[in-house]
């Protein structure tokens, strides 16, 4: 079964080419992981951020809390980043 699969994939590519292509796929995956999570974080922070700026404009004491709420979605992009780094270097 496994041997059949290998022969099915092998269409005249050398081992180096396959390795390089795998590396490329990894890089693509890492890029997609960071990019999409970045977009996600951006969308999530958009609403919170505008409301937070409004709140801070009304009352400066809100700054700490406002910043805290605004950066909560940042976790998403950090996850993406961790996945990206793991893909590339582990």
């Amino acid at each position: 079964m496994a041997a059949e699969l290998v022969t099915a994939v092998d269409v005249g590519m050398s081992v180096e080419a396959i390795k390089a292509s795998q590396m490329g796929m990894k890089a693509l995956g890492a890029g997609i992981a960071v990019g999409l999570t970045g977009i996600g974080t951006g969308i999530a922070e958009m609403g919170i951020g505008s409301a937070a700026v409004g709140a801070v404009a009304e009352n400066k004491d809100m700054f700490g809390l406002a910043l805290l709420f605004t950066v909560i979605p940042e976790t998403i992009v950090i996850f993406g980043l961790v996945v990206g780094l793991l893909l590339l270097f582990l």
Binding site: E74, T75, I78, F79, L81, V82, L85
Partner: peptide, 12 residues
């Protein structure tokens, strides 16, 4: 988990 991983930003 998310808070601990958040410190990965130091490297990133």
């Amino acid at each position: 988990i998310s808070h601990v991983l958040s410190y990965a930003r130091i490297v990133a």
